[in-house]
Design a protein around this nucleic acid. Sequence first.
DNA 1: TAATTTTTATGACATTTGTCATATTGAAAA
DNA 2: TTTTCAATATGACAAATGTCATAAAAATTA
Lengths: 202, 202
Amino acid sequence: MITIYLAEDQGMLNSALSQLLELEDDLHVVGTATDGNTAWQEISQLAPDVAILDIEMPQLTGLDVADHIHTAQLATKVVILTTFAQKAYFERAVQAQVAGYLLKDSPSNDLVAAIRQVMTGKTTYAPELVVNMLSADSNPLTKRELAVLTAADEGKPTKEIATSLFLSDGTVRNYLSSIFSKLGVHNRIEAVQIAKKNKWLK
Amino acid sequence: MITIYLAEDQGMLNSALSQLLELEDDLHVVGTATDGNTAWQEISQLAPDVAILDIEMPQLTGLDVADHIHTAQLATKVVILTTFAQKAYFERAVQAQVAGYLLKDSPSNDLVAAIRQVMTGKTTYAPELVVNMLSADSNPLTKRELAVLTAADEGKPTKEIATSLFLSDGTVRNYLSSIFSKLGVHNRIEAVQIAKKNKWLK
DNA sequence: TAATTTTTATGACATTTGTCATATTGAAAA
DNA sequence: TTTTCAATATGACAAATGTCATAAAAATTA
């Protein structure tokens, strides 16, 4: 019997998954949480075989919890369950030696499969990730370009950006223009969007 | 036997829910989709008793699909399933005469309950919504203004906004100008920021 | 060291934005 | 039933934005 702890902050997915896992003869959900703090508390108590952790949770992220589990040297295997294939997240997960990493895009059966898989000592990563890793979208923007874009994101008009960065008006427009061409767009809003999607901008 | 169609773009939730619903003796999932277009195609063919629709889906939103169902006068009852309690969404849903509206925060059993409920002809709305409605920090923007701002937030330039909303170029600029004066700002980015902070815009 | 990239700047130009005045229609509120 | 507000439109104009060519010092990389 494999014992499982499920931490997922979206109620519907949380309860749907836990009911579903519970239906499997060899799986047993020993607890669930919708925030990272409770999750870590209970996992350290219960020491389940597997912890399924969402990344974006209140208080502590799933990656934080995974770190704790790792440093506390619990035998609990961690499976990260997240929405997007983000390079940065994935790297942190590897650091924390998680046993599995899969996306919410996948069907729920993949989760069941992943659980059994990690119990055999193997690791499983969503294939989308590998693709995403190879075509690593490293930031094409320079420091200053990023500074300009950040200011633009705050809604500042060109002039304000210029004075705040001690640049000339035209230089700021040039930077923006260069940013646009690098990102293949034609205005600030789109540029900011792309930069945010790629986590180059918070 | 209640026939159900499920449209939810997040694969994990989609498959988890459909498996879960299928377990109930009186429920049968006749189809699922992860985008609005397929959803509407299939729903119009299959005419299920209940359609469970996520709002944020590619191509057509759940609200668009609900509109279609409503105007095509299908007998299909619609249950909207969404992440946040947004007044605007809710209002549009009411317009489209949806039978139920619930949040992904709720446990999955609420969904099962809601399905049975709407089949008796009753409507069910998540209680959080009512609270959210009352304490609604009232939005000074009109429907169209919001539509324009939403498009602007996507990075579309004036012309595109105009064609996508079937408006003239100047009208769009007028709306934006009026938005700015209502919100006390002078450009799109700032306007979007404020609207987001106040949850008038997602 | 040589080649390349980054940071910074101008000027000129076309286009896009934002502002304002003004006007019509229809719907909602007083 | 006035009066107001929402939705829509024009035209005109000023200001901001985006594009391009060109340039040069400083820093980085090969």
